[in-house]
Design a protein around this nucleic acid. Structure first.
Length: 493
RNA sequence: GGCAUUGUGGCCGAGUGGCUAGGCAGAGCUCUGCAAAAGCUUGUACAGCGGUUCGAAUCCGCUCGAUGCCUCCA
């Protein structure tokens, strides 16, 4: 498939702070790296929003015809729990708490992560590398940075020398920080550090005796610093310079800043052309934190087993809810917001169900061609899914009007409408239509059609007691009947 | 405290220097045996205070609030 012509895509680049026209390094191909989760506990909802934003972006690139290599890592080692001085691998700490092998924890939560993402209908990335699977690559990078003079070894640990780096490069350009400010604002409370400067960050940490996850290196047994894995894996699979690097806003500093520093120290040039940052998700206007109880797990939403929401919501509804906000905006999740999204989502899906049945006429009373372009315009403007959705609802309105024969659509336009709607709703936004995915619904459909027929006869005989009985009892079972001009339709909830 | 982002009608959320998305909720109407659904009509919101401008909610400054980062974090 060729990349669609006439589609100028603009992307907000966090590095420049501007929307820029997107131009891939290799025409028709895109290399994209997104920082994945640390698998030491269940993925929480905020995580999901970030990955969902990039899933949507991945999907849109594919829809446009790009060949995308999408790398999203699994962090299964390397993050420090405490201050760097007494660093303990986060994974290892959790393991001791739960009396499990570290890799057992990793396995459990990796499975949980994949499980949730599948429910949300994520497309799998092209490559999902793990940090522990790339220790050798990380060690090589550390060696290289030392050789180039931007890192120093001390007591079996290796630190990146930010000051030296800043003399020839610009540390802080992504996050808008100045090294001088950072130095003057550093808290002096921290215990004596072996680092030359507080801003220096660990590339390699010496493993103390009790440390379970450890690997041999030229500096003794230890483990990699947490910024290193992304540099190692992105470079390995996407090259020294690649198109897009994404992640959550909270990773901008220090993580992404350090990645830039590491890559520039090694290769002398910037690793990424476009930096994208997805914004945070809040719950009832407050940040999510387990400590305050203001937190909810994806599965708790799907099952309804939580104290925050009034009912269960399907993954597709949650996905639709998230897609109604721009990925760079803070989004607040609440019961009212989900309730509203659920209704909107149902309305959209019902319109799609009605698409086939629309009568095709000679001409159209609506410019579907222009509408289609508006959908692309929305996505081409920094993946503006909320605008896209507003355009989709324009189509919903048209569908309902055409159904009532208040407006008309031509055969050709019906095809455009159908293709465009399906592409954007299912391929790009990644929503699923629960009405169609219901297995065994054919039998149910037949039974309900029969009841509709019986009810119709009753109504014609003015036997409203019987017709209402059918309608009310079906309603109790969650099957809603709707009388329209061209007959009765139903909807299973 | 520093840096960054942000504050939109009852709720959620786009967007723009003047032509004011969308969804949900509300009101009225049409349709209907009744209801639901659907359709139509209806809301002049943009934290506060100043400034720039012919004109700002949109640009600038200050104040207040929120969120993120500065320490593991999407």
């Amino acid at each position: 498939m060729q990349v669609s012509e006439n589609q100028t895509l603009k992307i907000y680049n966090s590095l420049s702070g501007k929307k820029e026209i997107f131009k891939p390094i290799n025409e028709g191909h895109i290399g994209m790296y997104v920082c994945g989760p640390t698998v030491y506990s269940n993925v929480h909802l905020g995580n999901c929003r970030t990955f969902m934003s990039f899933d949507m972006i991945f999907r849109y690139f594919k829809h446009l015809g790009y060949k995308v290599r999408y790398v999203r890592n699994i962090t299964d080692a390397g993050h420090l729990v405490d201050d760097a001085d007494e660093g303990e691998d986060k994974i290892a700490k959790k393991a001791r708490l739960e009396q499990l092998e570290p890799m057992e924890v990793v396995q459990r939560y990796t499975i949980d992560f994949h499980n949730i993402l599948e429910k949300f209908n994520f497309l799998p990335p092209s490559i999902e590398p793990t940090a522990t699977g790339h220790i050798i690559e990380q060690i090589e990078i550390v060696k290289d940075i030392i050789k180039k003079g931007f890192a120093y070894e001390i007591n079996g640990s290796v630190y990146f020398d930010v000051n030296t780096f800043n003399e020839s490069h610009e540390y802080g350009k992504l996050s808008g920080r100045k090294l001088e400010d950072m130095i003057s604002n550093t808290r002096e409370l921290a215990a004596q550090s072996e680092k030359r400067n507080p801003q220096d960050f660990a590339l390699w940490k010496k493993a103390e005796a009790e440390h379970i996850m450890r690997w041999p290196s030229p500096w003794g047994d230890g483990f990699p610093g947490w910024h290193l894995e992304c540099t190692a894996m992105s470079t390995k699979y996407l090259g020294e310079t690649f198109d897009i690097h994404g992640g959550g806003m909270d990773l901008k500093f220090p993580h992404h800043e350090c990645e830039i520093a590491q890559a520039e120290a090694c290769n002398g040039h910037s690793p990424v052309n476009y930096w994208l940052h997805a914004n945070m998700l809040t719950l009832n206007g407050k940040k999510m934190a387990k400590s305050t109880g203001n937190s909810i797990l994806p599965n708790e939403i799907f099952t309804g087993e939580n104290t925050i929401l009034s009912k269960a919501f399907s993954p597709s509804v949650v996905r639709f809810f998230m897609m109604q906000a721009h990925y760079t905006s803070i989004l607040d999740i609440s019961n009212d917001a989900l309730l509203a999204s659920e209704k909107g989502y149902n309305k959209l899906m019902e319109a799609i169900d009605n698409l086939e049945k629309l009568p095709a006429k000679e001409t159209s009373s609506f410019n579907f061609k222009a509408w289609q372009q508006h959908c692309y315009d929305a996505m081409n403007d920094d993946f503006n899914s909320p605008i896209l959705i507003s355009k989709l609802f324009e189509a919903v309105k048209q569908i309902n009007l055409i159904k009532e024969e208040k407006e008309s659509i031509s055969k050709a336009d019906k095809d455009i409408l159908k293709t465009t709607l399906h592409s954007f709703v299912f391929d790009v936004l990644g929503l699923e239509n629960k009405n169609n995915s219901n297995d065994g619904s054919n039998k149910l459909e037949g039974v309900v059609e029969l009841l509709i027929e019986l009810r119709k006869e009753a109504r014609e005989n003015k036997d409203f007691a019987t017709s209402d009985k059918i309608r009310n009892q079906l309603a109790e079972m969650g099957i809603e009947l709707k009388d329209g001009k061209e007959g009765t339709t139903f909807n299973v909830s």
